[in-house]
């Protein structure tokens, strides 16, 4: 199951999966920040949005909902700001930062500080410790976990503290949450990286699940993996 979101893209209404929405939003943010200081900024971005809407319509066919695949395909056709810079715009025009050299200037230039999330990819219980480790910049969450255990054993209130954090700290659900958790800048290439990681994890889970099915053919039950549209 997946939550969906209603959007208006280039004057057309779409129903879009939440993860696909996040990816699209981040992509458009990168596009807008790339063209912000270009002549005709509004027209360029409106043209791009209208064309993305059209690409979605084409790749959806009779489906009702825009999925991550549709977004990825549209981004592949439209390209990222890094590619525009390489093949289209001459260095003399358009670009916002005169200080930005080829490589540095190609990245959208906003950066988020780290935010505290629970890390669903690396969890023993609720992912609190690995999220804390990412927040504090500690490479291996084992140290945070050990600290929690020691704290509890030495008579501290480690267990209630963990439970409170579990409740109040949100889980890093989307690609941009995960980037914010690690303190990486949110841009299209990073989002792409996260999505790729997610896809490979998903396929790993599927093959593990398939293996397990093979082993326990006589009715071993396993909780089914997250279902995706």
């Amino acid at each position: 199951m997946n939550k969906v979101i209603h959007i208006n893209l280039g004057g057309m209404p779409f129903i879009i999966d939440e993860d696909a929405y996040e990816a699209l939003r981040d992509y458009l943010a990168a596009i807008h920040s790339h063209f912000r200081n270009s002549e005709g900024y509004e027209e360029i971005t409106a043209d791009i949005e209208a064309r993305l809407a059209e690409l979605f319509r084409e790749s959806m066919g009779h489906r009702q909902i825009v999925t991550m695949k549709d977004v990825q395909e549209a981004i592949r056709i439209m390209g990222t700001p890094e590619v525009f810079e390489a093949e289209g715009e001459s260095a003399a025009e358009g670009d916002a930062a005169p200080s930005g050299k080829q490589d540095a200037g190609a990245q959208p230039r906003w950066r988020t500080g780290r935010r505290l999330f629970r890390d669903p990819d690396d969890q023993v219980l609720g992912g609190v410790c690995s999220g804390l480790a990412a927040y504090l910049g500690i490479e291996d969450p084992i140290w945070v976990r050990l600290a929690f255990v020691l704290f509890t054993l030495s008579g501290g209130f480690g267990i209630p503290l963990y439970i409170i954090l579990w409740i109040i700290v949100p889980e890093a659900k989307t690609a941009s949450d995960r980037l914010a958790m690690r303190g990486e800048p949110i841009n299209v290439s990073n989002i792409g990286k996260i999505i790729e990681e997610e896809m490979s994890q998903l396929s790993k889970r599927v093959s593990e699940f398939a293996e397990e099915l093979g082993k326990e053919d006589w009715g071993g039950k396993k909780k089914s993996g997250r279902q995706r549209a």
């Binding site: 005709g40 064309r51 700001p81 525009f84 093949e87 289209g88």
Partner: peptide, 17 residues
């Protein structure tokens, strides 16, 4: 000459302006 569509839109806008 180009690979992605996004390259074209700023050029068209510039030529139009």
């Amino acid at each position: 000459l180009i690979v992605v569509e996004g390259t074209l839109y700023p050029l068209l806008t510039r030529l139009k302006n």
